[in-house]
């Protein structure tokens, strides 16, 4: 018995797929679809394509994405890490003058408990949890992320309106969850002063 050559096998396989697609097409076009229903299906398809197109264009061209930087960290050793040691938390300028805010979520508060940031300025938040799952949002802004232990949640945003805002835990984290919140002051850009200390070290440190 002679083995089939590779090209013959490939041809067989392609033939099988072509038959399948033809059969599938024939079956699907044989069903009765009312004229009006066909119109409706086309309208819904167009609507869905439009919505998907808007989201995709925003994502690829305008860079509007949810947080999605997969970066791990040992949540049990935050106090020993360089980046999230207590003295390193809060609002800081990095070497290039960008504002980075490092925050630790732990039952039941966000640390530091109060921070002040400038309005209308690009801010990069880096959130970590020291215990369980938390979530955080600042009402009336789009600063929102889950804080999953073992991962750094990084999110970049800016706040258009100055004011006092609460920082709220929005994922159930234990019986004291209600009390998990802190404050942020958004200060008019011209009134805001950078903190004295400037930290250059930005490399994540996984302990």
């Amino acid at each position: 018995m002679q083995n089939k050559s590779f090209s013959e096998q490939t041809q067989d396989l392609i033939g099988k797929w072509v038959d399948f697609i033809k059969d599938f097409r024939a079956q699907m076009t044989s069903i009765h679809v009312d004229r009006l229903e066909r119109k409706w299906i086309n309208i819904t398809l167009l609507t869905v394509c439009l919505l998907v197109a808007i989201i995709t264009i925003d994502a690829f061209w305008h860079g509007i994405n949810p947080p999605g930087k997969v970066e791990t960290i040992d949540s049990a050793k935050l106090h020993l890490s360089k980046e999230f040691a207590e003295s390193n938390l809060g609002v800081q300028l990095d070497g290039q003058g960008a504002i980075v805010i490092r925050m630790v979520a732990g039952r039941y508060s966000f640390f530091p408990k109060h921070i002040a940031v400038p309005a209308e300025t690009k801010l990069t938040f880096r959130w970590v949890s020291m215990d369980v799952l938390h979530g955080v949002h600042i009402p009336m802004t789009n600063m929102s992320t889950m804080i999953v232990p073992g991962y750094v949640a990084e999110i970049t945003t800016s706040f258009p309106k100055p004011g006092e805002y609460p920082v709220l835990c929005n994922e159930y984290c234990g019986l004291g969850h209600n009390h998990m919140w802190s404050n942020i002051s958004v200060i008019a850009k011209e009134d805001w002063k950078a903190p004295a200390k400037i930290i250059v070290n930005k490399e994540p440190d996984n302990g």
Partner: peptide
């Protein structure tokens, strides 16, 4: 999981 850090965009 849109707001989660452990999956990429």
């Amino acid at each position: 999981l849109y707001m989660d850090p452990q999956q990429a965009s």
